[in-house]
Simulated scan of single mutants.
Amino acid sequence: MDWTSAQLRSLVELTRRGTITAVADALGYTPGGVSQQITALEKATGMRLLRRVGRRVELTDAGATLALHAERILTTEAEAVEALERTRNEISGTLRVGLFATAAAELLPPALRQVRESHPGVTVRSRDMDVDEVYDAVAGGTVDLALGLDYPDVPIPRDPSLRVMELSRERFSLAVPTGAMPGRADTSRTSRTSGASDTSGRAGPRKVSLADTRELGWILPSVRSYYGRAVLTACRRAGFEPQVAHEVTDTAATLALVEAGVGVSVVTDLMLRLRPSRLDVLELSETMERHIVVVFRSFAEHRPTVAALVDVLRTSTGRRPPRREHHGTDKLATR
């Protein structure tokens, strides 16, 4: 039948995400564009694939059957791309990369410079997306690989069709308005404008506990996000429920609010580099981490362009390749 990969991908994403709007967000289309893809697919098959139920749409039996086969078709197509790449005498081709804001600002630029130098035949097309969406985007074939985050307290569910390789680990500290915890002034690891180091000559810093913030307002993402749930889990383990004064997802906005004195939040060094801020950063007695990971489909492990970019990312983050890796997760990504 005369259909396109874009049409099949729209149908597959609809089974994953449930609404036309969500599919549009995932694929970078407008909702009308997604509807057009599905309509064209119905014309190609001569069958009705969707039906309306109130304000929602759902797959017909024919739609569900085609969606199942469409996943296999798209996987076979991706495997064919990998096989063709391996026949070339040089590493060349186009990669679609999904990434979150911090990765876009700090991790991808140096990696792209190295790719241009080492593999000039590789073209990278990047796309900013919600960090919690990158796993589904890779699984659905929307992107070829993605940079994501994982939290030991609330690990991302593992899809056996994906490879998740840890690139680096970051430990969280507590960001508080300057002078907000005067009794603990000597616990300030840095009091920074644009990340300036503390040169006060104080003795080694003492650590502050999350429990010391029980009376303070917090700035956090929604608890529906993995990040929000990870912070909530850590606070509950410390024996209190954080008082969320401002529900904010954007890191730069969070730092601005802390600087303005309206609340506290947890931060990593990478997050602090997103916005020059004047605030106090206190070392936490609790160990709270996030893992920066690269995600790609298992069968693409030996695709030359994917392997090349993964190697560059490992090099740029200082992560050596593990001796042995397992499907679904990297050996280094211990929990």
Rank of each mutant, 00 (worst) to 15 (best):
G217Q: 14
G217T: 12
G217A: 15
G217N: 14
W218Y: 15
W218G: 11
W218M: 14
I219Q: 15
I219S: 06
I219E: 13
L220V: 06
P221H: 06
P221V: 00
P221Y: 10
S222A: 13
V223S: 12
V223D: 15
V223F: 11
R224S: 07
R224A: 13
R224Q: 14
S225H: 11
Y226K: 01
Y227W: 14
Y227C: 01
Y227Q: 09
G228M: 09
G228F: 08
R229Q: 11
R229A: 12
R229S: 13
A230N: 14
A230R: 07
V231D: 06
V231K: 04
V231H: 07
V231W: 07
L232P: 00
L232F: 05
T233C: 02
T233V: 02
A234W: 08
A234L: 04
A234R: 10
A234M: 04
A234Y: 05
C235H: 07
C235L: 02
C235M: 01
R236C: 04
R236T: 06
R237K: 06
R237H: 08
R237C: 01
R237W: 04
A238G: 03
A238E: 03
G239E: 05
G239Y: 06
F240Y: 15
F240C: 00
F240M: 01
E241M: 13
E241L: 13
P242F: 08
P242H: 08
P242K: 01
Q243P: 00
Q243V: 05
Q243L: 12
V244L: 06
V244W: 12
V244P: 11
V244Q: 11
A245H: 13
A245W: 00
A245Y: 03
